[in-house]
Design a protein around this nucleic acid. Structure first.
Lengths: 348, 348
DNA sequence: TTGTACGCGTTATCAT
DNA sequence: ATGATAACGCGTACAA
């Protein structure tokens, strides 16, 4: 087998009449070499085209610069944005990103995590806080730095950064109630697939329930959460028997836009006959003639904070175990103007 | 330092009274062990919770199961789809994906590629065929399996799979000419950033030129190729002095939808007063009330074919050096009906 | 500040 | 079919 590392630390040492250790120290930037030899070594390394063998490093030191990042899917705008926020920080700090897409399958996630451990990964980044119990235990026992992101919990595996999905759902419900919508529907994917969306739904249901409204029409479509999924689910919902919902809350803005298109095509008056709400405030919402009422989620910032914290953990620093970033309601044109908090007789 | 691999090949051998080599052979599934010992070893490995140390493996064998994949950006629908197509195949074959996002910076790409070599990567996957000359040379010299995707060339570093962007631009121009549009504009990002888009523009310009039309109004916006970028660029274009273009060709469907929104907001009649064309046939196009005329690109399939071929290369097989996948024009409602090929007097 | 001895966990090579 | 020995390239621990 032809080696791809023709020049190693030994060669530099030989060329300079130094021991391998001096070279190693100089190259890694650690204490224990005079400034002079360090410069000499670095120059020689450059001249000779030295490249470190990362596998050998990792084997010898039981450390590595590999960080494994697992996300459910690359098709969603939200995970790419979070990932991008992380990667900028990882790159800067010299870490490489080993990626996985789980497609919302926790067993696959667990298998992949083991592979990452086989690589001696410096840290693991997982989406959400719902994982295989075995994986949770194992990562804890191993004490490997682990970041859970997007969701939050009081008891993360190690550290976490995310938003409160239940509260986001509740906040949205509050707004819809204030707008006078009394027959809500939620359109999402099958239960258990996207547990964060399930939590938002739970927050919405609870809030409506505490206002005396127990009927939330839940529609689930077995499809990626796309524009098309939103359109299809909405068609089926509107074609169904029984009382029509007066407001449709979607799993995300893309599904919401699909639903919006369907409603407009059917000639439904928005937001009067029917309201529409999304989630995430995705980029498309900037250019829609009728911006969708949604919840703004801080995705890039979440990635940056998460990356910063997990790197601190790798270096052994103590960091805040759990960071919950607030979300914000964005009122668009797809929901009616809220009734004034002064009551229905206000002139607002 | 606490080791994360409490049980190694040696331990299994000790437990079974076998040498490390027999264990290694059994576990790797190579020849040289009796069926009986193999089963015994595999069971013992499972029972004892053996996990291979991948760095040690890679160091000893000068092979690894790491594949480095570099893409310009995660925000685009097209790269995630290609990547997803690849990953499915990689996963299945037992390869791990080390990812990079270049943000269209070839120098960063080259640096990252070196790091991948430091990891002893089994293969490199790069976007497009325009790279730092040094990187090209080096990968060739090293004979490391390399896949270039999305674009094509007669002379790839190693193997490539992609589409002919120049021809795609030309095909679109043919259609727009057939529709009777004579004052085309192209809306994209700064020249050199997205070299594939530059090639499509070149194909469009050449085709219009061969029809005697030399004026193509090119607008570039320094922004990610998003809905918003399309909207902003279109606003500025339509506000400009001089004759207004009668058809707008965009870098992709997202920018096109942004432009479409702007045109509709300004009350322009589409497709008569002004035509709109995109690129890629992205998912959003399925649900638009007015589907955008675009070019369908085979993204998932490209990823799968590319992954299959690069794995074959890793295994030493000979594969087609260059696969060019055809694209297809999708005629939407944002361009006028083409004049019949029979000429202007036809009753078509 | 510099150097020596050894180990990291596995695979290649050559023997039996 | 199985085993002994020697790398793989580097870092840790300790000595000088």
């Amino acid at each position: 087998m032809t080696r791809r590392t023709p020049v190693g630390i030994r060669d530099i040492g030989d060329a300079l009449g130094l021991s391998m250790m001096s070279v190693s120290r100089a190259l890694r930037g650690v204490e224990g070499v005079s400034a002079g030899t360090r410069i000499e070594v670095i120059q020689a390394a450059k001249r000779m085209g030295y490249r470190p063998n990362r596998n050998a490093r990792s084997l010898a030191s039981a450390h590595s610069t590999l960080i494994g990042v697992s996300i459910p899917s690359l098709f969603s705008d939200v995970f790419p944005e979070i990932l991008d926020g992380m990667r900028a920080t990882f790159d800067h700090a010299g870490f490489d990103t080993l990626i996985d897409t789980t497609h919302y399958n926790t067993a696959r996630e667990a298998d992949w995590a083991e592979r990452m451990l086989d690589w001696n990964a410096a840290a693991l980044v997982l989406c959400g806080v719902d994982h295989e119990p075995d994986l949770r235990r194992r990562l804890r026992d191993l004490r490997i730095p682990t970041l859970e992101f997007w969701d939050t919990t009081d008891d993360p595996i190690d550290v976490c950064v995310g938003i409160d999905h239940w509260k986001a759902g509740a906040d949205l419900a509050e707004h819809l109630l204030a707008c006078g919508y009394t027959r809500p529907a939620f359109i999402g994917v099958p239960e258990g697939r996207d547990t964060r969306a399930d939590k938002r739904l739970a927050g919405l249901v609870a809030t409506y329930a505490s206002a005396g409204i127990d009927a939330v029409d839940v529609r689930r479509i077995d499809h990626r959460a796309t524009f098309e999924a939103g359109a299809l689910a909405t068609e089926s919902l509107l074609a169904a028997e029984g009382p029509r919902p007066d407001v449709l809350a979607y799993l995300n803005d893309h599904m919401a836009f699909g639903g919006l298109s369907t409603c407009m095509r059917l000639g439904l008056s928005i937001p009067d006959a029917i309201g529409i709400a999304g989630f995430n405030d995705l980029e498309i919402n900037k250019i829609l003639p009728m911006p969708i009422t949604t919840i703004i989620t801080p995705r890039t910032r979440m990635g940056e904070i998460g990356a910063r914290n997990i790197i601190a953990r790798i270096k052994g620093a103590v960091v805040e175990r759990c960071v919950t970033i607030p979300t914000e309601l964005r009122i668009g044109h797809t929901t009616r103007a809220p009734l004034s908090s002064g009551g229905p007789f206000s002139s607002n």
